[in-house]
Computed example of a mutant assay.
Amino acid sequence: MDNTQQPSDQQPSARGLPRLTLLREITDGTVLDEVFRRGRVTRAELATSTGISKPTISESVRRLQEAGLLRESGTRTGRRGRVASFYELDLRAGWVLALEVSQAGLHSSAADLAGREFDSRWEPPVRSGDTDALIQSLRRTARQVLETGRRLHGELRAVSLSVANPVDPTSREIIALPNSPFPEGLVRPHQILADLLEAPLLIDNDVNFAALAERRSGAAREASSFAYLHVGAGLGMAYFLQDQLLRGAHGLAGEIGYLPIRSVDGRRASLAVTLARQGFGRPDAPSIDVVRVTDMIEAAVAGEMPARTALALFADTLAQAIAAICAVNDPELVILDGPIGNHPALQQRVRDSLTEITTLPVRVEGGQVDRAALRGAVHLAVDTGRSALLTG
């Protein structure tokens, strides 16, 4: 039996790769992360910021250039006449596509792997339940953006889709909920886009995406455990615990519209049904009347007494749900957002109500990210696209 060991740089790693290959992959990933963070950087700066030796950095930069991921982008003269070359992400390293389906229509955002948007589009909303029109809208937008993206940035690395319905955590299929005002649960995006997209398709709930955007660049930048409550035509919540999104066994964590609430007349129903019974729902759809409630809040701000009474009732009902969330999960922050939830007057009235019904420390703030769901979808697509650079 030959007991001679393999050379140390060829011993298999836990991932099944030769050790030298694994070290190169780690180094290249570290270099790319710095390029993403800084945008434009020299090899000396890379060595300083990463702690990796200059020769190793030079080899990594060479490999990444040969792979079409980095490009030289100018020079800088230093001390004693030394010239340093700058490197940045190659324009054709790849790109990502984010799609958002909502009652406002279909919005899309295409970005390079640095997260810079280069294409955005909008298609008007389809009639509720018209799945054929929704499918056509998705495919039409995908075709148009694919042509532009491939021409400018090469390979499509990831696609994300934001929908108003929950998503099964195992199958990643959209869940159609009873009495939902949103038609997306009736389509299967993986099937209808399969022939157009060669990249991974990532589907998630719009509230989850919005919470991700607030964590990255909004109100939750300093909070790793927080609740994000969307109040609009529908109600939804996302909860991050130590930067981990809680999905639940069936993908239904955060479906706060189904939370049981006792109304002022003593009847018990879900939060959504209770608000409808209180006069805040639309008569023609299972949803909150956004226009009517917004007008009510504005009238309350103007001092109209009936509107002030209605605002207090609306806020008190929401506060009951928020108090329940805080009693169970104790978040650092509750973000109140959405077409109705982002109104400062509502946020303040909710704070006042919480002071009356709970002694728990509850901090309520408004969302800070515009088009948060689409922005969060871009973040996830970029993260996935970057990860694919060295493995795709």
Rank of each mutant, 00 (worst) to 15 (best):
G279R: 09
G279C: 07
G279T: 10
F280I: 06
G281S: 03
P283L: 05
D284M: 14
D284P: 13
P286A: 06
P286W: 09
P286Y: 05
S287T: 03
S287G: 06
S287E: 15
S287M: 12
I288N: 00
V290H: 10
V290Y: 11
V291G: 14
T294N: 10
D295A: 14
D295E: 15
A299L: 12
A300M: 12
A300I: 13
V301P: 06
A302S: 15
E304Y: 09
M305H: 13
M305I: 15
M305S: 15
P306M: 09
P306D: 08
R308V: 04
R308E: 13
T309P: 00
A310G: 02
L313F: 04
L313C: 08
D316P: 00
T317Y: 04
T317L: 06
L318G: 02
L318F: 04
L318W: 03
A319V: 10
A319W: 09
Q320K: 07
Q320R: 08
A321C: 02
A321K: 00
I322W: 06
A323Y: 03
A324T: 08
A324R: 07
I325M: 09
C326W: 01
A327W: 10
N329G: 01
P331K: 05
L333R: 08
V334R: 02
V334F: 09
I335Y: 11
D337L: 01
G338D: 04
P339N: 05
N342W: 04
N342V: 07
N342F: 03
N342K: 10
N342S: 14
P344A: 10
Q347M: 11
Q348Y: 02
Q348M: 08
R349K: 12
R349N: 02
V350R: 01
D352K: 07
L354R: 06
T355N: 13
T355E: 14
I357Y: 07
T358W: 11
L360R: 14
V362Y: 08
V364L: 15
E365W: 11
E365H: 14
G367I: 12
G367S: 13
Q368R: 15
Q368W: 12
V369F: 09
V369P: 13
V369M: 14
V369N: 05
D370A: 13
D370W: 09
R371N: 15
A372R: 13
A372H: 09
A372I: 09
A373V: 09
L374E: 06
L374F: 08
L374M: 12
R375G: 01
G376Q: 04
V378N: 00
H379N: 06
L380D: 02
A381C: 07
V382A: 00
D383F: 00
T384D: 03
T384C: 05
T384R: 11
T384K: 07
